[in-house]
């Protein structure tokens, strides 16, 4: 099967890539662009470890063929780290030990940021609900909920300051 040529903007950089139609975006990010912070845990959309942002919306990279993403703006953990957009979440995860093996963490952070962008004042149940599609086998989730809760409150407090 002939490869397809696609153009993606990934973390602000434009890439012209030749990909097989069958290749999902997570593999393209990892194998073609060496952005290995996007992890693969199941490849059938269940574990959430490959969650990235596509045109601003969180998306399972394993459930999106790279060809479907033609022309899209992709953001991965590497990009979100460099822009500093989720610095506070990263700090909170570190300080609260909200990660152990770290494999779910990039996707968990991106999912948490998605929640806070849409709902700046989530309660704990809402936080749990929003991350309920992201497997974490190490922490039991409580530390993650704590970390997101801390950041939500800190952002609120910062927003309220004159």
């Amino acid at each position: 099967m002939d490869k397809k040529v696609i153009t993606l903007t990934v973390n602000g950089e434009s890439h012209r890539l030749e990909v097989e139609a069958r290749t999902h975006l997570a593999d393209v990010l990892r194998d073609e662009l060496a952005l290995t912070g996007t992890h693969i845990g199941c490849e059938h959309g269940v574990c959430g470890a490959c969650t990235i942002r596509v045109d601003g919306a969180i998306t399972r990279a394993c459930l999106l063929l790279a060809v479907q993403a033609e022309g899209a703006m992709i953001e991965t953990i590497e990009g979100l780290s460099e822009t500093g957009e989720i610095r506070d979440l990263q700090d909170a995860f570190r300080n609260r030990n909200a990660l152990q093996c770290g494999y779910c963490t990039p996707a968990m952070l991106i999912t948490a940021q998605d929640l806070l962008l849409h709902n700046p004042t989530p309660d704990r149940a809402t936080i749990r609900d929003h991350i309920s599609g992201n497997y974490c086998r190490c922490t039991g989730y409580q530390a993650i909920v704590d970390a997101v809760d801390t950041v939500a409150k800190a952002r609120q407090a910062a927003g309220e300051r004159p």
């Binding site: 959430g48 969650t51 919306a57 969180i58 998306t59 399972r60 998605d114 599609g133």
Partner: peptide
Amino acid sequence: VAHAAIRNR
């Protein structure tokens, strides 16, 4: 229906 990331697409 599933989770936010799925509902987005």
